[in-house]
Structures are given as C-alpha cells and as structure tokens.
C-alpha cells in the first residue's frame, strides 16, 4: 500500500544568478512498512528532501502526498496538525525540550493534541526503548544514546504514518549508533512502521530495505536490498 508519493519535487533557494537548486524534479513512492535509507554527499539535498516530506519546509514546485493527502494544499494551521498526527521526526541533535521530563517529552505530540496516551501503548514503547526507569529524568541527565531513544519514543507515540530521521546517529559513538539503528529497525518490523532515514554511514544504509542515492538534488539510484 502506497503511503508516500512525491511528484516532481523541486526546491530552489535564492533568486536569479545566486539561485541554488537543492532539489531538482524528484519523484518516488514509498509503500507502507518500507525502511528506506537516503544517502548522498553533503549538500546533495538529502536534508531538504526530508524537511519537505515532513512538512517543515515548503517546496518551490511539485507535490507531496502522504496517505493521499496533498500536504502542501493544507493551510498553515492544518499543516501543523497534520504534521503532529501523521509525521514522526527524529533529528541528529535530538531536539528534546530541556525543561520537560522524559515522560513529558515522549507525550508531547499527544499533549499538543489535548489527548492522553493509551497507557498500554506508552508502556510498550518505553519498555522497548529501555527507558522505563528513566521516565522522570530531564534530557540533560541522559546520555546521547538515551536522548535519541527518547526522541524515537516521541516520534512513535502518535503511530505516525511516516517516521523521518535526519542523521539519527550522526552525534553518537558506534555502539550507540548500532543500538539506535537496531531499535528503528525493530519498530519498522514489529509495528510495520514506515521509516525514512538520512545517513552518511554506509553500514546504516545497508540495514534498510531500499536505498535512494541523491546527488546534486536528483535521485541517481534506487536500489532494493531486501523485501
């Protein structure tokens, strides 16, 4: 089942002679449950692509459909709500709220929606992430790997249609990196969670089901590794 469709996506920064084409007519589709790695040299447009998929940056032209919703036809308010409910984002530097506890950080997307988490679902996620005994800690009392696990929890709590990760291990040592990737992969398999990960690391890319290579804003390779 198709969960994401990108059609002729372009993003141009600047105007006239100084214009930079970050994305140039990018099109692809993603099925539910796929684990996709996006690789490419720095400045190739990977992060721009991820930001546009996540609804945090607007494209110059082209369309993004998440579960058949034309994301950029929504107005500002609706887009924010859409993002909150359908997209889970994981960043390189975690972006946790420093004054909120682990528990509050994970619940944040639901709190914004005025909802309470289902206790079973919350407990399940926290156990899998190995955070059950850290719920009342603040982010600065945790190691980098633990903080990234919190941000995975925050991305998962809403059962998003799409989980996007931008260099999720870029700031971690190799042991923590492989833990984070293993967790992402486990959620991908057990919850059939669709996952798109941007990475520099070839070892991480090889864990994915499919690798998209981006160079100069274009997709130059689309390889299926396993299914």
């Amino acid at each position: 089942m198709e969960i994401l469709r990108v059609e002729g996506l372009s993003k141009i920064y600047g105007k006239g002679e100084t214009a930079v084409k970050a994305l140039d007519n990018v099109s692809f589709t993603v099925n539910k449950g796929e684990f996709i790695a996006v690789v490419g040299p720095s400045g190739s447009g990977k992060s721009t692509l991820l930001h546009i998929l996540g609804g945090v940056d607007t494209p110059t032209s082209g369309k993004v459909y998440v579960e058949d919703t034309d994301v950029y036809s929504l107005d500002e308010t609706k887009l924010a709500i859409f993002r909150r409910r359908q997209i889970g984002l994981i960043y390189q530097f975690y972006n946790l709220i420093p004054v909120l506890t682990v528990k509050e950080n994970i619940m944040l997307p639901l709190l914004l929606d005025g909802r309470k988490a289902d206790k079973g679902h919350f407990k399940d996620i926290v156990n899998k992430l190995g955070l059950s005994d850290r719920l009342d800690y603040l982010p600065n009392q945790l190691s980098g790997g633990q903080q990234q696990r919190v941000s995975i929890g925050r991305a998962l709590i809403t059962n998003p249609a799409l989980m996007l990760a931008d260099e999720p291990t870029g700031n971690l040592d190799s042991k923590n990196s492989s833990e984070i990737i293993s967790l992402l992969k486990m959620f991908n398999k057990t919850l059939n969670q669709t996952l798109i990960v941007i990475t520099h690391d070839e070892r991480i890319a090889l864990q994915a089901d499919r690798i998209l290579t981006i160079e100069d804003g274009r997709i130059t390779k689309d390889e299926v590794i396993r299914r």
């Binding site: 089942m1 539910k32 919703t69 609706k78 709500i81 909802r115």
Partner: peptide, 24 residues
C-alpha cells in the same frame, strides 16, 4: 480527516488510522 483541533477531528483521525490498518 480534516486536520482540525478538537476531539471530533482526533476521532476522525483515529478512525482513519484503524481503516488503514484494516486495509493493510
């Protein structure tokens, strides 16, 4: 889904998610 604030919209959203799972 109408991506609005409030309980009704959340309900619609949750129903949609269940539908997607069923479909799958």
């Amino acid at each position: 889904r109408d991506n609005a604030e409030g309980e009704l919209s959340i309900l619609k959203n949750e129903i949609y998610k269940v539908t997607v799972t069923l479909n799958e």
